[in-house]
């Protein structure tokens, strides 16, 4: 009987229809991979014991436990282990533990909630700054690409040509760069303003 198990691994899928099939075929033992079947059986039984099975699974397992000796034995074995684990004891710290903690926390105060001192606008500002920076570089780089040569198979050499064609001097002296830098400066000033306002408020509250 031990090695004549049911083809549960084929049947016990998440499709609940398979469960009724399994219950109908309960008296048709077939040979299968013993380890797989055992593992699947255990997994299903643990779910049943933990109360994680669906209603259909639960009733199917109850039928299996009632009708199949192997399932019944395994169920009792796992239930025993479950009860042992439930009964395991918590470990206790020394008698002075709570007193030590209370003495220690007397030196401290509850810190203000993180959300009160992390200003979302500052985070959005920093995020915006980097996004503009990336978009700016991307737009400039794309505007410099020679699309006419893009279809040639020598991608690497074309890439080198494109990079060589870039006028780096113009990049750092153009109107575009000036505008870009102006936006960054404005953003930087806005962030500084937010930071200083917050400092001022904190100073007033203190």
């Amino acid at each position: 009987m031990k090695y004549m198990t049911y083809r549960v691994s084929d049947y016990l899928t998440n499709d609940e229809n398979n469960w009724s099939d399994l219950c109908n075929n309960i008296n048709k033992p077939e040979k299968n991979s013993f380890m797989d079947t055992q593992l699947d059986m255990e997994e299903r039984l643990w779910d049943y014991i933990d109360g994680l099975s669906s209603i259909n699974e639960k009733s199917a397992i109850e039928k299996l436990i009632g009708a199949n000796l192997e399932w019944k034995n395994k169920y009792h074995e796992l239930l025993e282990a479950h009860q042992l684990m439930m009964g395991s004891e918590l470990q206790e710290p020394s008698m002075r533990f709570a007193k030590n903690v209370m003495e220690e926390i007397a030196k401290y105060h509850v810190a203000p909630a993180t959300r009160t001192y992390i200003n979302k606008r500052v985070i959005w500002g920093i995020g915006g700054f980097f996004i503009i920076l990336i978009i700016g570089f991307l737009v400039y780089a794309l505007s410099q690409v020679n699309y006419a040569g893009a279809s040639t198979p020598k991608i690497l050499s074309e890439y080198n040509n494109t990079v060589n064609k870039l006028d780096w001097g113009r990049f750092f002296n153009s109107t575009y760069t000036t505008v870009f830098m102006m936006i960054n400066v404005v953003l930087g000033l806005m962030m500084l303003d937010i930071y200083l306002t917050r400092k001022k408020q904190q100073h007033k509250e203190a």
Partner: peptide
């Protein structure tokens, strides 16, 4: 427990 106390507002 000390850390939990200090960050209780969180």
């Amino acid at each position: 427990f000390i850390k939990a106390y200090r960050s209780l507002a969180d």
